[in-house]
């Protein structure tokens, strides 16, 4: 899976590529509009992550070109601009997602994966990890082939974990993933805790192993080790 990261802030581009490379993606970086333009006309990518504000051009133009030459490429916009107009315009010209800076790398990772799943399997495939099987189309979860009933948020949480295996996730990123960013309060962190407790219980009840590890002061990690 090849990903192009179009981002002029070198440090951020590096962080993104490092993070996504760990997840098994092959990443390339374009720091300027012209680099990006050149790369998209030469190579094919499964997903492109585009910053809208570039020193020598507008990210929207890249998306438009991309849509013309490689319509199947998934596009995620990352931008500091958080106006509704930008978001609507982004979706109108064919991007698949819009993330406002600053974002969580784990969230970006989850969205890239979900996008690629949608693009390649039409969202109809199953996600299988160890004894856990998730039927994405039906939104059903099986542990050792028995179904476990998860609430909507617990299902989202599990999917988020499965997209970020072996990754330390902050409580804040989980809270934001589940409730969006207008739920910023101490309460939302408590809620993360109780949802995790429930998810853990439901997996173990059906004979699964407890894969959720808490990391002191930071958050949680879904890991087999």
């Amino acid at each position: 899976m090849k990903i192009l990261v179009v981002e002029d802030e070198k440090g951020l581009a590096e962080s993104i590529t490092d993070y996504l490379s760990r997840e098994g993606f092959i990443c390339e970086v374009a720091n300027t509009f012209w680099q990006a333009d050149e790369k998209i006309s030469l190579y094919q990518y499964d997903c492109t992550i585009v910053d809208l504000t570039l020193p020598d051009g507008d990210g929207f133009d890249i998306i438009q070109t991309l849509k013309k030459i490689a319509a199947t490429t998934g596009i995620i916009i990352i931008s500091a601009r958080n106006t509704l107009e930008d978001k609507i315009k982004g979706l109108e010209i064919g991007s698949d997602d819009y993330m406002t800076k600053p974002f969580h790398l784990s969230e970006l990772n989850a969205r890239v994966k979900s996008l690629i799943r949608r693009r390649h399997f039409g969202g109809n495939n199953d996600m299988i990890w160890k004894e856990i099987t998730v039927q994405l189309a039906a939104r059903k979860v099986f542990i050792r082939d028995t179904e476990t009933m998860l609430s909507r948020k617990e299902y989202d949480l599990l999917l988020y974990f499965l997209s970020n295996i072996d990754v330390a996730l902050t409580k804040e990123s989980i809270a934001e993933h589940l409730w969006g960013d207008n739920m910023d309060s101490a309460d939302s962190l408590d809620m993360v805790y109780s949802h995790i407790k429930n998810l853990r219980r439901k997996i173990v009840e059906k004979g699964g192993k407890d894969y959720i590890q808490s990391i002191y002061g930071i958050g949680y990690k879904f890991t087999a080790s």
């Binding site: 993104i16 931008s79 500091a80 600053p102 902050t170």
Partner: peptide
């Protein structure tokens, strides 16, 4: 201003996230 401030903040966030791994 939004862009200029949010970008370094995004960088801090990303670096911290990398670091905690």
């Amino acid at each position: 201003a939004s862009h200029e401030i949010q970008t370094p903040l995004a960088l801090i966030n990303a670096r911290v996230e990398q670091f905690i791994q």
